[in-house]
Every structure is written in C-alpha cells, then in structure tokens.
Design a protein around this nucleic acid. Structure first.
Lengths: 226, 226
DNA sequence: GCAAAAGTGTTCTATCTACACCCATGT
DNA sequence: ACATGGGTGTAGATAGAACACTTTTGC
C-alpha cells in the first residue's frame, strides 16, 4: 500500500485515522481491547486499535480492517462514535481520528498481534493503563454512549454468545449499570420485547435447577425501544 | 491562508471539511440553511455551508468559522453529528466531511453571502432543492438526530427567541413532530421541567387574552431528561 | 357580544417498582 | 437433606394520555 512517491497538495492536509473502542464482558467485568504500540510516538504505551485510512477505503471498512489486522477480531457490531480532531492530539502531524465503538460477544476472542501492534490485550474498563494520545477520552466517550444506549435499545444483546440463559443476560446488564436488578422484573422485560426465543434446550451448570437456553431472534438487529 | 508551496506526504492524505446543517423554525416550518455554490463541482447547486479544515484549527472552530464566513450566522448551538467519508463523495479528491448540526432561534438571522458562496437562503426541510455531494443524506441524518433528541432533551428550546409564550413553545414542538399536541399536557410538562421562568410581562397579539411571557432559566444549557 | 387564543384539573390507563417463595438439580 | 441458582405473580406507585370549559382581550 505504501508507495515511494510523494503525495502533494496545494493546501496542507491532515492525516485521517480510525480508532476502535471494543468492549466485551469477560470475567464478570466490562473490558476494553488495547494494543501496545511498537513505534513512536508513545512507544510501548497502550492504545486503541486503529490506524491510517487508505485513500480508497471507506471509513467503516478502515475501522474493521485495522481492528482485524491488529487484533484478529472481526465480525462484530461496529458503530461510528465521534470524530476527534484537536490540533495537538498527535505530535507527529495533524491527525483527525474517526472513532468507532464496537461490542463483542464474551466468547473467547482469539487475539493475535499484528504488524503495528506488539501485543493486544483486554483491560477492565475500571482499571485502564495510561493510554497514548487522547485515547482515554475516546474510551470514556464510548462508554457514555454505551450506557446511554442501554435505556432505549437492545445494544447490550451484542455481548451475548449464540445461546444464553436469562440469568446470563441479566448479569450483563448488572455489570453494565453496576447495580443489582430485580430478577422477576428483568425477565418480564426481556421476554416482552420479543428479541429472544427458547431453543428448547436446558443448560446444566452446577448442583441446581437447569436453566432454559435462549437465542436471539435476529442476531444482527438492534432494536430501539419505546 | 493559501500558500503557493506544495504540501507533500509519504502517503496520500484525504482532505477534511466540516459541513453544517442549520435548522431553524420560520414561517411555521422547519427550515434549513443552504448556500449556492459558485465554483465547480456542483456549480450553481445548493449545498450545506462548510469548507476545508485549516491545518491548525479545531474541528468545532472550523464548523463555526465556515458558517460565519459563508452565511454571517454565529453564536448558535453546534453539535458534532457524524463523519461522512464515502470514497467517491467528492469528484475532486478524497474528502472526509465532519458534519455538524446547529439550531438557530427563529429570530430573523441576517444572511450574507461570503467568499465561497454566491448566496445563502433558508429552505423548508420538506421542500429541499437538489443538493451537491451527499448533502441530502447529511441533512436527513441531522433531522433524525434532532427528532430523536426531542424525546429526552430540551434541545428544541434552542429554537426559542429571548422571550416567548408557552403557545409559541408548543408550536415549535408541533412543527417538529408534525402533529398536534394537547395544550394542557404540554404546559404541565413545560412548567415541570424547570427550564423556563416568567418574565412577569404579558404579550398582546390580537383580539384575545394576552399571553404570559417566559424566558429560559439558562439559555446555554441543554438538559437531558429522565 | 363575538371571535380568538390563553389558561386551567381530573380521570383513566399503562408502565414501572417492590417484593417472597417454590422448583429442579448435584452432592 | 441441603445448598444453589432457576423460575414465577401480584399489588401499589408513578407517569403519560385523554378530555372541555372559562378567561381576557380587540374589534
């Protein structure tokens, strides 16, 4: 993709990148995917997966590509978040970053290091390391968006694996809002919104009554409620 | 700002612009501010006010500056909307547009033509002319955002002039949702959310009972409800 | 005195909240 | 038999929706 010719313009052009905030729920906590930077600036620092937009590539594709290249993560819900363009946010040159946020099922995502990243790892949202650039701000903007969407959409269902129990779904919500939720009210709601259906199977998971197993009626649809 | 030297990069860089969708309510209709393009591409076509980002300028400032330069409109509520970056959205070169949306009080805004715009004018949202680039899509995205924010914020109060009557406020909402609203319920709501206060004055406006005049308790605050 | 918009309460309905016990299983 | 999480219904509170008449003015 790199060509050894210069690309010249009559006016200065900023660089454009995409950065992706990937959330998942693992080990009973909301976690965020970070990569360790191999080159300057912020060498060795943790940062969001992301990188420069190819000149013939759509923004959404760029976000998906960078994520795949740097972490091996693909096929997840990806939504444009906000664009960050403070003049001094990158010491190298003017960089405009179109940030995305993504939600991944809790299923063990195999992480692999890519070209631009020495390492990729999950960090608990409440225990993030120091981050490169303005990535801390981007992550917190993404978190605000996630939490506010809980109220009026089924976005949190994107955290679910193929099949799940209602207790697992409830646990996701409890982790996200960081508060206990009434079991009966939650189940009433979850069954009323018509987004899940029984598989007919039961899941045995310890010395107690087995749980009914559900699946999403439409995995790729996020419903807006009310 | 134009310098006659070339600006060269090892990799191709897209251009970055901001475009602003300004809404107001005039003549009992939601209207949008457009400018007529003087140069190619889309010469003579109507388009959103906006233009290229200066290399040392924040995105928000760019949006405000372009709006001011092209239309004379300043000091209004401005919020980043979404970034549009389809590969072929501009025939000249790759252009990433960070779109903003803005709400202006109905007070007659004095429009003036600027350098890049032959003309600036308001168009009813439901009777837009053919637009340059993907600006039609940007406007409709902005409209969706506006309408969805009505439900959970006081964003529509940005359409209000310094002082107003409750009937005027109700009319704004009726125009935005394009449906009649119950007067008693609306007034109960409007007074309950603590965003308006009486000025003590009355407004006479025809052969009927005068209306109480209100002002916003805090003009610059948009409240998120519930 | 009439036309026209301002102003005002109550009832009904739907939704959300709080809350406690039995069920099915593994050990 | 007991420990553990799965599963279920009802009553009270709250918020939203429906609805009609009196008031004040200009002409």
């Amino acid at each position: 993709m790199s060509r050894n010719v210069d690309h010249c313009y009559a006016y200065p052009h900023p660089a454009v990148t995409t950065d992706v905030v990937v959330f998942t729920i693992r080990d009973e906590r909301l976690q965020t995917l970070l990569i360790r930077r191999v080159g300057p600036p912020f060498e060795g620092c943790w940062a969001l997966p992301g990188g420069f937009l190819d000149i013939d590539e759509d923004l959404d594709r760029c976000a998906a590509r960078e994520l795949r290249e740097e972490t091996g993560v693909a096929d997840l819900y990806l939504e444009q978040l906000c664009t960050f363009g403070a003049v001094d946010r990158d010491p190298r040159e003017r960089v405009i970053s179109v940030a995305y946020f993504a939600l991944a099922p809790a299923a063990r995502l195999q992480l692999k290091a890519g070209d631009d990243a020495a390492d990729a790892a999950w960090f608990p949202f409440h225990a993030l390391p120091p981050l490169a650039f303005d990535h801390d701000r981007i992550i917190h903007t993404a978190h605000e968006r996630l939490v506010s969407k809980l109220d009026y959409s089924t976005i949190a269902f994107q955290f679910l694996p193929e099949t799940f129990t209602l207790s697992e779904l409830q646990r996701i919500y409890e982790i996200l809002v960081d508060a206990p939720i009434d079991k009966r009210n939650f189940r009433k709601w979850a069954l009323a919104i018509q987004q899940v259906e029984e598989t007919g199977e039961l899941r045995r998971h310890g010395s107690h009554r087995p749980a009914r197993v559900y699946r999403l009626t439409d995995r790729n649809r996020i419903t807006y409620l009310k």
